[in-house]
Design a protein around this nucleic acid. Structure first.
Lengths: 262, 262
DNA sequence: CGTTTTGTTGACCCATCTCAAAGATGGTGG
DNA sequence: CCACCATCTTTGAGATGGGTCAACAAAACG
């Protein structure tokens, strides 16, 4: 338990496992919390094999920024994050959503600078790891390398799924599929799925799904009318999903020719 | 030059650098051809550090298939390839196009089986590498690992660009941007960009861009009418691109409010 | 509280899809 | 070499999903 609860340094940074020189030789860190059960192996592997920093963030905080020099990878311990890219001509695009166990920053590996912004959607904590240190450590612990590769591979597959949604589904179905995926992911990581809180505005969701905010709003209304989702009393940002499969069924229905009715 | 031009084994496989036991210990291969200039470092690194097989493929051949057990990565030496995913309910989606220097198969790392099909669009050659062998070799030659990571990182960034096109551009602009990207990529790898051959049907292009084949056809007609592209005499699959920047300008014009005219 | 941001809903319009017909293209076998 | 066929491409006309504009309701915020 030595040095587990480290001193908080400036601006929301907590150094874990550092004594004098932070972020140098890979010494075994000792983190104490509840990392039990079958939580993302990424977190466990990093905790057990790497020097890392814990950084607490709040809604709106930027984890990194497009153009910034690459050097760190981040593992999400808690909180929700959006990944946003900006085209040269000013188009802004939400390209991914991240939460517990996800890696952030791999887009920076290719060119040596990040090419997206990552912004916290609520309060949370990310673990900061130096890419170099990760590579070094992976020499002695191959599982670490495997984990990174799997994470990147998963991200590629996920992006392709998004592409398929965009290309093949109607607006309503995209919203339904979005909720389905979101709930499913939460479930995979041991969180509640029957009542989820959308951390984004309709505009942000629409941006992510290639729809206008009005279309998102209408889609949600229709899903509610079809009893596929429900709205909790509190605002319209909490969505009740009594049955995830019903969302999938809705998507299917909207694909097959005779869908829509009932 | 020993064993460089290896015996062709059954069904289009050429083993490079194998003598008795193929694909085992990483022995130094000796490949003789023209790998010069600033061609994809992937090819050079693999050639110099790994045991690999060369596989010649023809239009329509499948490199690997969704569901197949993962084990190999592939580096494209020549030819063009489409990556296709199939959803459980039967939707088919072209999610990427690949050519010289690109890696194939990284989508298989996450789950231990590939989750896409890769299909050759014409005659070409891919180099087959065992993922395990690559990891082993990367212990002694870190550049190999760096190359793999950069390739995956690039793929993630590219997928995000596609997402942005899908979400923010009109149909015509998506087609223009597609041609622009295609030509630019060819240029990056030292190929001609002023007259490119589309290896896909309108239907395939449309599938990739989230458009119907009719919309693609109309978009191409309009681009030709606007003199942004031209059609070579030979069929309508050869597209002349006198000026790549003109394509970019077309995209810009279709974004800004007062676009379209002239 | 007022002020600002976010969400909902309606009416209208347009880009893209759908359906349909006809022209190219390319391959195959006689 | 040509006739034939399957596939691909182009183009038109009409239908429609989702965008746009606008008004208002509901939260969030200080």
């Amino acid at each position: 338990m030595v040095g587990a609860e480290a001193v908080a340094s400036s601006s929301g940074w907590k150094a874990v496992n550092r004594s004098a020189a932070p972020l140098t030789a890979p010494r075994r860190p000792i983190a104490s919390e509840e990392l039990s059960g079958r939580i993302g192996s990424a977190l466990r592997l990093v905790r057990d094999n790497l020097v890392y920093q814990r950084r607490v963030v709040h809604a709106g905080d930027r984890i990194y920024q497009a153009g910034e020099q690459f050097g760190n990878l981040y593992i999400v311990n808690s909180g929700f994050y959006k990944v946003v890219t900006l085209s040269p001509d000013g188009r802004e695009q939400v390209v991914a959503l991240k939460f517990r166990g996800d890696w952030l920053g791999v887009d920076g590996i290719a060119r040596g600078e990040y090419d997206s912004d990552v912004i916290a959607l609520d309060t949370g904590e990310v673990w900061v790891v130096r890419y170099d240190a990760l590579l070094d450590a992976s020499l002695s612990e191959r599982a670490l390398l495997t984990e990174l590769h799997q994470a990147m591979s998963r991200e590629i597959s996920r992006d392709r799924d998004s592409l398929m949604s965009l290309c093949t589904l109607s607006g309503d179905a995209r919203v339904a599929d979005f909720l389905r995926y979101w709930a499913e992911s939460l479930g995979d990581r041991g969180m509640r799925t029957d009542c989820i809180t959308l951390r984004m505005t309709r505009a942000e969701i629409g941006n992510y799904l290639g729809l206008t905010l009005e279309s998102v709003s209408r889609a949600l209304s229709r899903l509610a009318k079809a009893k596929v989702i429900g709205f909790a009393g509190n605002g319209r940002r909490d969505v009740q999903i009594p049955d995830i499969d019903a969302l999938g069924a809705f998507v299917q229905r909207s694909i097959s020719p005779a869908g829509m009715l009932q």
